[in-house]
Nucleic acid binder design. Structure first.
Lengths: 215, 215
DNA sequence: CAAATTATAGAATATTATTCTAGAATTTAA
DNA sequence: TTAAATTCTAGAATAATATTCTATAATTTG
């Protein structure tokens, strides 16, 4: 592919970011379907032409937004991991897993609009347009998990499907988060922070003991 | 509201069902956004006028589809619960919880297109149009869970947020299912059937022991 | 500074959802 | 059985919306 690298200055990058925030507000308020380009134009102050110049089409706006959201998510996970390593010289698998739950709960609680959008578009976006762009972002968490396990010498982990294990860890949190973000449950996700961490650890222990779920 | 009850014959009900199946195929193949009314017209053999006569608009087609999907899901859960009661006179909480996981895994595995659609639209649909219509459907599972717990005299359950507990049980399964349905993981959900059941039980035990997660 | 590139604007166009009108099929009620 | 009422079908007409296009302004590069 002729990757005709356009020069993008910092100022325009910031404008794009602002436009994405405006778009996110629209999506949050009206949903993706219902927001029109016109609405985004209004909210962002950009012209239709500029929006299309920068993003290509509505789908790609969502795509860019998704990637931006994932970057924020990856950032906090990395941060928490770093902190854990700094504070405890020999963190166990339990600490590692709970840390992952905390990072998830905290990011979602602190960035509900981003989280709602990311959850809702993880599916849609991935199968359309510029996939390659965020291939890396998504798997950050997974890679971290497996290197953790390796680092801590949990041999049983190698025989487990990494996707299966991460579902155990984040599944309940994400499931509840979706409900909470959609307003279908009132008790904030954050109130179950500790309980989800405990449950994740218990679940992983459960399969490590039985241990026959090879992939 | 003037509930001007239209008379709906069995034949037309069947036609509607057929149209919904056709719509589901379109959505499965192209995604909701990308499928046009025209496509659904083609696939269903109906005219645009008929489609709008029966469903109202594109969103309502999705809504009807969602409800149809949820009915199928509720049916299998009810079935599994009945079978469990029939086969074991005094089923424990462990059996009950594993049964719920099995029902979920089996329905999703057996109806991937429906599952994909339901997962993707649980959010969208709920916040638009005719909400009341499926208020009941969705909560079937939850109600069953709490009556199970009551039936089995698990007192600790009363102090737990029912939404929290059902996230523990179905969260990992659904999380993995989403990935699998989107083609992002290859190992079929069904291969982890037993492991997810074990994990759910372990997770619930984990919070029951700690038990301080009151709502 | 001049050429080249990138950004902005909004009108023009194309696509798609929705509405509308007329008539066909079916049901209801006598 | 038949006529009125209701429901269904069809596709053209319309409206809403996404996308493209053309022109110009701003910015960067050499």
């Amino acid at each position: 592919m002729g990757s005709s690298q356009k020069k993008i200055t910092d100022k325009t990058r910031q404008k794009q970011r602002d436009a994405l925030i405006a778009a996110l507000q629209c999506f949050t308020e009206h949903g993706f379907e219902a927001t029109t380009i016109e609405m985004i134009r209004d909210a962002s102050g950009m012209s239709v032409g500029s929006l299309y110049h920068h993003f290509g089409n509505k789908e790609k706006i969502a795509s860019a937004l998704f990637r931006e959201g994932m970057r924020g998510y990856a950032r906090i996970v990395k941060q928490y991991a770093t902190d854990l390593m700094a504070n405890s010289p020999e963190p166990g698998l339990e600490q590692g897993i709970k840390m992952l739950v905390y990072a998830n709960v905290d990011w979602i609680s602190g960035n509900p609009d981003w989280a709602r959008f990311v959850f809702h578009h993880r599916f849609t976006v991935t199968q359309s347009g510029d996939e390659g762009a965020f291939r890396g972002d998504i798997s950050d968490f997974r890679k971290m998990l497996s290197s953790w396990a390796r680092f801590m010498g949990v041999a049983e982990f190698d025989s487990l499907d990494i996707n299966f294990v991460s579902s155990l860890i984040t599944g309940p949190t994400h499931n509840y988060a979706r409900q909470w973000l959609a307003g279908r449950v009132k008790t904030p996700l954050s109130e179950h922070r500790e309980a989800f961490a405990e449950a994740a650890w218990a679940a992983v222990q459960g399969v490590l003991i039985k241990g026959s779920s090879t992939s």
